[in-house]
């Protein structure tokens, strides 16, 4: 950062100096002529958004336009629909003349929405934290210079390559009360059997566990990259100072993994918001097991089963705001570090 400023400052100085020289030499410069309206606007834009803003437009503007229309435009349109009372198949479409927050009031008083919001929140936080912890532990183990390191890394990463549809079916069988492998394994140590998918108070955790199984490999890879970036000196210095292995990791190594943690957790949270696929595949329907209803499943049910388009849009906006609350701090963090 400081380097850049220093360089820019010296550039400025040198330009100034050269200007002086040229002025002394009596050279007329094109830039000194009074620019027209177009030129002024262009220079104002360049000053505001950086060099060559206008000149580079052909390269980024079409993509920007498409994104604006199909992503942000669609979100905005969804917001407008959520303010209408649109439902059913009126041939006229939504009535935009009468916008109000009625649907939001209804949503905040709807116990299904509140339940689904809580479940979504628990899922996002629970899944992200456990996946980070498991991923970190795996990364530390793999990083200890074990034999067959590459093989283990692949084994841990492999579940992520499977689709939710496949893993949901796996876990449906594994969680079976009578002959699922989970209860059989627990049975050998005298626990259970537990009705994983039928008991409302544990089913969400069963889902979180299954998702953690699938994504901890990803967290491991991110952490492994972070660990590899830490110079060996750090380990050696800690050893020389007499730190135990646990203390070395806890005090010296893990604090340096902040960047990896943040980027992994953002990706994981986004995966958690996509848990719809998993729940859908688990029951092959829009209504997940009792106790795992999340905003995404509720939204689809309201929109497509009940054709309450406006209400479905409202739930979508609530979900969007939750996602923003998660991504927002990350964006601010990145902005402060000058990465944006």
């Amino acid at each position: 950062m400081r380097d850049i400023f220093a360089r820019r400052k010296s550039d400025d100085e040198s330009t100034d100096r050269s200007d002086e020289t040229r002025a002394d030499g009596g050279v007329a410069r094109a830039g000194r002529e009074k620019p027209g309206v177009v030129g002024r606007t262009r220079r104002a834009l360049d000053r505001r958004f950086g060099e060559d803003f206008v000149e580079s437009a052909p390269f980024w503007f079409p993509a920007f336009l498409l994104m604006a229309l199909f992503v942000y435009g669609a979100i905005l349109w969804n917001l407008v629909i959520s303010l209408t009372d649109y439902e059913g198949f009126g041939l006229a479409g939504p009535d935009y003349s009468n916008l109000d927050f009625e649907m939001y009031v209804r949503a905040f008083n709807d116990s299904n929405v509140i339940n689904a919001s809580i479940n979504t929140f628990v899922l996002v936080i629970g899944f992200t934290l456990t996946t980070l912890v498991v991923g970190l532990l795996l990364a530390l183990l793999v990083d200890r210079g074990i034999r067959f390191e590459n093989t283990f890394r692949t084994i841990y990463l492999l579940p992520m390559s499977l689709s939710f549809v496949v893993t949901a079916q796996f876990w449906l069988w594994m969680y079976n009360y009578d002959n699922g492998v989970v209860n059989i394994v627990l049975g050998t140590i005298g626990l259970g059997p537990i009705d994983w998918l039928g008991n409302q108070s544990i089913v969400l955790w069963a889902v979180i566990f299954a998702l953690t199984w699938q994504f901890s490999g990803y967290a491991m890879v991110v952490y492994l990259a972070g660990l590899r970036a830490i110079p060996d000196d750090n380990y050696e210095a800690a050893m020389v100072d007499g730190a135990s292995t646990v203390k070395m990791y806890w005090r010296v190594i893990i604090p340096q993994l902040k960047g990896a943690t943040i980027s992994a957790s953002v990706v994981l949270m986004v995966f958690a918001l996509k848990a719809f696929d998993f729940l859908y595949a688990l029951v092959s329907g829009y209504r997940p097991p009792a106790g795992t209803d999340i905003l995404a499943t509720l939204m689809v049910r309201e929109a497509y089963q009940n054709t309450n388009w406006a209400y479905g849009s409202t739930i979508a906006i609530i979900l969007f705001v939750m996602a923003l609350l998660i991504i927002g701090p990350y964006l601010i963090y990145q902005f402060r570090r000058d990465n944006l």
């Binding site: 069988w173 079976n176 009360y177 009578d178 059997p193 009705d195 994983w196 998918l197 039928g198 097991p289």
Partner: peptide
């Protein structure tokens, strides 16, 4: 109904 009903489709 059987203990595994919740995972039966």
């Amino acid at each position: 109904i059987g203990d595994d009903a919740s995972s039966v489709d």
